[in-house]
Design a binder for these strands. Structure first.
Length: 117
DNA sequence: GTTATGACTTCAC
DNA sequence: CGTGAAGCCATAA
């Protein structure tokens, strides 16, 4: 077979493939379970790229349905940031609705709710 | 081209 | 448990 790849001096569409892989993993998280950024990245074949997962979720197409609220950080809590201006609170509420129990510190038992693919 | 920032993780202290 | 540093890489300026 002829070489399809056209010489990639500066890695052209690496991001697009990463986004597709990440979306596929996140979409597979069952209701009532959660996964960490690093975990999703690893499942998508992108070890050590947890940050990329966060950027993808922030930039993902609103037309695509993705349970972005089921992705949390490694501390067992929702990632609170100024950028989302309250969107983090919504995430916590959605998770509570799915059965995740938060304590007074806005944290939950990660080992109990963590999803294993 | 460079620099700074961020929905992160992990290890060291 | 808190803080700091290093690692990672897309995006914005």
């Amino acid at each position: 077979m002829p070489t399809k790849r056209k010489l990639a001096p500066t890695a052209p569409a690496q991001a697009d493939e990463a986004i597709a892989a990440i979306c596929a993993v996140v979409r597979g998280i069952p209701k009532g379970w959660v996964a960490t950024y690093g975990q999703v990245a690893a499942m998508a074949g992108l070890p050590r790229r947890a940050r990329l997962v966060g950027h993808v979720l922030q930039h993902l197409d609103p037309a695509i349905k993705i349970p972005w609220h089921r992705v949390v950080n490694a501390k067992g809590e929702v990632s609170y940031t100024q950028s989302r201006n309250g969107g983090d609170a919504l995430q916590q509420r959605l998770l509570e609705k799915e059965g995740i129990e938060f304590d007074d510190n806005n944290r939950f038992n990660l080992e109990r709710f963590r999803w294993h693919g």
